[in-house]
């Protein structure tokens, strides 16, 4: 029973966040600095107008979803079940760590770690042989392609 309510709530969270975001955007637009040249409010009009529309549409969206709150959304269920949330979280966290390491320890080293980690987690530990081969080959090839052939300066 609890799961059902949480699923329902989840459907409403996004429209709710959008409402909050629109209001934040509106306040931020209001507080933009005045321009020193020409019409001082010039930079504000567009974002302010936009934020009003955004808020309106977010509220309409919220109401729409609220009316349909009892309908099942298969995909929201899936996103919370089984291995999926772990996979998504792992990829994002790994990407985050990769971003931090990328310029510190260099492209090749960080990429081998990142791709290896992803492959081991997604493809499973049993296929370690494939994982290692793919990691090393693909990292090297992409390094070679970008850095040497395309002349992109990689760290």
């Amino acid at each position: 029973m609890k799961e059902v309510t949480s699923l329902k709530a989840l459907k409403l969270i996004v429209p709710f966040i959008l409402i909050i975001a629109s209001i934040t955007y509106m306040i931020a637009s209001w507080n933009l600095p005045d321009a020193n040249l020409g019409n001082g409010n010039g930079p504000k009009y567009f974002p302010l107008g936009l934020s009003i529309f955004m808020l309106t549409f977010s509220i309409v969206y919220f109401i729409q979803e609220f009316r349909k709150r009892d309908e099942e959304n298969e995909e929201i269920r899936e996103i919370l079940s089984g291995r999926t949330p772990k996979l998504i979280a792992f990829t994002v966290v790994a990407g985050f760590i990769y971003s931090l390491l990328f310029e510190r320890i260099g492209f090749l080293f960080s990429t081998v770690l990142f791709l290896g980690a992803l492959l081991f987690f997604i493809n499973g530990r049993k296929k370690w042989m494939t994982n290692i081969i793919v990691t090393i080959c693909f990292s090297t090839i992409s390094w070679y392609a970008f850095s040497v052939l395309l002349g992109v300066s990689l760290p």
């Binding site: 990829t91 990769y98 990429t111 492959l119 997604i122 793919v134 970008f146 990689l154």
Partner: peptide, 16 residues
């Protein structure tokens, strides 16, 4: 399962 990690990596390099 092999393709997706590669796409993720290419996305990062492309962004860089």
């Amino acid at each position: 399962k092999i393709l997706y990690p590669m796409i993720v990596l290419l996305a990062f390099i492309g962004t860089y």
